[in-house]
């Protein structure tokens, strides 16, 4: 074995490095963390965005209020936290046919830890077509931009006509749904919003107008992504904030599907014959023996 090389005694002092002075900002952070988010004061308290956990928040706020506070720095009302918690319920169906839940079920089938299953399922739902987090960001960006144009005088018809077309219909994130056209979550959300005292803001009214046009002309309407996008814009959140708040919103359904298959036999989640996979690649061929050039 060669001689071990210990860099500790050989690292020259800082001022012996030739420096362009461009590295100053990293010098500043070497061995130092600066945070505006929070601090654990061991044995005493925790501060979250300026609030004392044990004096201001603990047993006084809900977990969802803390989740949003951690994600955005905003301490939201109990009503809005309740709205979001109910919204999360509708993003985590315990049905292992749904893509992220397939991941959870397959983790269960392979007996991973519950954490691996839930984290992987949540990663799977970080998707541009479903999942409620990235899709909320996309829908909010679309709605915000379209509303700006609408306020500048562009008609709903023009806005719809300007959207890309897929399968003969406008492809607008937040309107229509990958699997079923009618979204069973919309009406309960409208009722919940009213019960909690939220009035329809300008983005929701605009989203309803878009939805009405799409229903009339294309038999498609707003889905939960579009509804959530409009509601959260009316509450003053940015698309990035909502992505951040909702990044684990499918987690509970994934965990459920993980537990469903953890106790079942190995390979019990949709086992496949070899021929259940359609192969469309090159036909069997011999491996070339000569050097390839």
């Amino acid at each position: 074995m060669s001689t071990l090389h210990n860099t500790e005694s050989q690292t020259p002092p800082r001022d012996e490095f030739e420096s362009s002075a461009k590295d100053e900002q990293w010098q500043h952070y070497r061995g130092r963390i600066e945070s505006k988010t929070g601090k654990w004061i061991g044995g005493d308290d925790v501060n979250i965005r300026g609030y004392s956990l044990f004096n201001d928040l603990f047993a006084k706020t809900s977990y969802m209020q803390i989740l949003v506070l951690n994600a955005t720095g905003r301490l939201i009302s109990k009503e809005l936290a309740c709205w979001l918690e109910n919204n999360f319920m509708c993003m985590s169906y315990p049905d292992s046919r749904i893509w992220c839940n397939q991941v959870g079920a397959l983790h269960g089938s392979m007996r991973t830890t519950p954490t691996a299953a839930t984290a992987s399922g949540s990663l799977a739902a970080d998707s541009r077509i479903y999942g409620g987090s990235q899709t909320s960001q996309s829908a909010m960006r679309y709605l915000a931009h379209a509303f700006q144009r609408y306020q500048s005088g562009t008609s709903i018809e023009t806005l719809i006509n300007d959207a890309p077309v897929r399968n003969g219909r406008p492809a607008i994130i937040g309107f229509a749904r990958p699997v079923f056209r009618n979204d069973e979550r919309i009406q309960p959300h409208r009722e919940m919003s009213e019960t909690l005292g939220f009035e329809e803001g300008e983005y929701m009214q605009f989203a309803n107008a878009l939805s009405h046009y799409l229903e009339t002309h294309y038999s498609m309407g707003i889905n939960i992504g579009g509804y959530t996008a409009a509601f959260m814009l009316d509450q003053g959140f940015s698309p990035k904030e909502v992505y951040t708040i909702k990044n684990m919103c499918v987690a509970s359904g994934v965990t459920a599907c993980y537990t469903d298959f953890f106790e079942k036999a190995e390979h019990s989640h949709l086992p496949q014959y070899c021929t259940d996979v359609r192969y469309t690649g090159p036909s069997p061929r011999p491996v070339p023996t000569k050097n390839r050039s």
Partner: peptide, 26 residues
């Protein structure tokens, strides 16, 4: 599921078991 990458030839007695595998034909 469709793939161009992998072909699995089933075992003669158990269609779940792969007896021979080909990657892009090899």
């Amino acid at each position: 599921v469709t793939t161009q990458i992998c072909l699995e030839i089933p075992d003669k007695t158990n269609p779940f078991i792969c007896a021979e595998q080909f990657l892009a034909g090899y």
